[in-house]
C-alpha cells in the first residue's frame, strides 16, 4: 500500500498533464495540478533550508572535524532567515502604511537587502568566477592534440575564441574577397550555425527520446526507483 498509492499519484498527476495538453476541456485540471506543483516547489525551498540545518546541527553535535564551519553556516542561516521571515527593518508598503507587515522583505536598505548586496552577491559571483582560473589550468594541462578528434575540438575552440573577440578581425580581416568566408568571425558563424547546430540537434533528438521513454516508464509504473528501495 505504501508503494501502490505513490505510484497511483504519479500516474494520475502525469496523465492529467498529458490529457490537458490535448483536450481543451481539461486545461483547467492541468492548471490546478500545476499550481499545486508550484506551491510544493516553494515548500521544497523550506525543505532545503531544513535539511541544511539538520545536516550541520548533526555535524556540530558530533563534533566532526571542521564542525566550527558548520556553526558558522548555522549562524548565517538563522540570521538571514530571522531577518527575512520577520521583515526586520522593513517599512510598510507606501500604499498600505497601516499594515506593518505589508512591506517587501527585500526592500532596499533593509538588513535583508544589505546581507544580499554585500554578502550573498559577492560570494556567489566570486565563487562562479573562480571557474575562469580552472578552465585556464585545464587548457594548459589536459588539452592535447593527440588524434583527429582532439584536433577538430581544439581547432574549433581556437576559431571561436579568436572569432568572438577583436582578435578575429585583426588577424583575418585582410583576407582577399575570394577567401572572405574564411575570416575568423565568418568562420565562427558558419561553425555555430552548421556544425554546432547539427551536433546539438542530434543530441537534442536523442535526449528528447530518452526523456520521453523514461517519463512513460515512470508514469506506467515500470520504473520505480524514485520510491527508494526500503520496504517501509
Amino acid at each position: 500500500m505504501k508503494r501502490q498509492i505513490p505510484l497511483l499519484i504519479a500516474m494520475i498527476a502525469g496523465f492529467v498533464m498529458i490529457v490537458a495538453y490535448f483536450i481543451p476541456y481539461t486545461v483547467s485540471w492541468g492548471d490546478t495540478v500545476i499550481v499545486w506543483f508550484d506551491v510544493l516547489a516553494a515548500i521544497a525551498f523550506v525543505l532545503g533550508g531544513g535539511n541544511l540545518l539538520k545536516v550541520h546541527l548533526k555535524k556540530t553535535s558530533d563534533q566532526v572535524p571542521g564542525w566550527g564551519y558548520s556553526v558558522i553556516t548555522i549562524v548565517a542561516f538563522v540570521i538571514m532567515l530571522v531577518i527575512g521571515l520577520g521583515k526586520i527593518g522593513v517599512n510598510p508598503a507606501a500604499k498600505y502604511p497601516e499594515f506593518a507587515w505589508s512591506g517587501k522583505f527585500s526592500e532596499m536598505g533593509s538588513p535583508f537587502w544589505w546581507l544580499y548586496e554585500y554578502v550573498f552577491k559577492p560570494l556567489q559571483a566570486t565563487i562562479f568566477s573562480m571557474l575562469a582560473f580552472y578552465v585556464a589550468s585545464a587548457a594548459f594541462r589536459a588539452f592535447r592534440a593527440k588524434n583527429i578528434e582532439a584536433i577538430l575540438l581544439l581547432a574549433t575552440a581556437f576559431i571561436i575564441l579568436l572569432g568572438r573577440t577583436a582578435a578575429g578581425p585583426a588577424l583575418t580581416g585582410w583576407f582577399p574577397d575570394a577567401i572572405e568566408g574564411l575570416e575568423a568571425d565568418k568562420l565562427t558563424s558558419y561553425l555555430m550555425t552548421v556544425f554546432n547546430t547539427a551536433g546539438n540537434r542530434a543530441i537534442m533528438i536523442g535526449i528528447a527520446l530518452g526523456t520521453a521513454s523514461v517519463s512513460l516508464k515512470i508514469l506506467l509504473g515500470v520504473e520505480r526507483s524514485y520510491l527508494g528501495s526500503g520496504e517501509e
Binding site: A132, V135, A136, A139, F140, R141, A142, F143, R144, A145, L154, A157, F158, L161, L162, R164, T165, A166, A167
Partner: peptide, 19 residues
C-alpha cells in the same frame, strides 16, 4: 570585451604551449 580579448589569447597560448 577588452579583458575578454586578452584572456582568450592567453587561453589559446596556454593550449599551444601545453601541446
Amino acid at each position: 570585451m577588452g579583458p575578454q580579448l586578452v584572456a582568450h589569447v592567453l587561453m589559446v597560448l596556454l593550449i599551444v604551449v601545453g601541446n
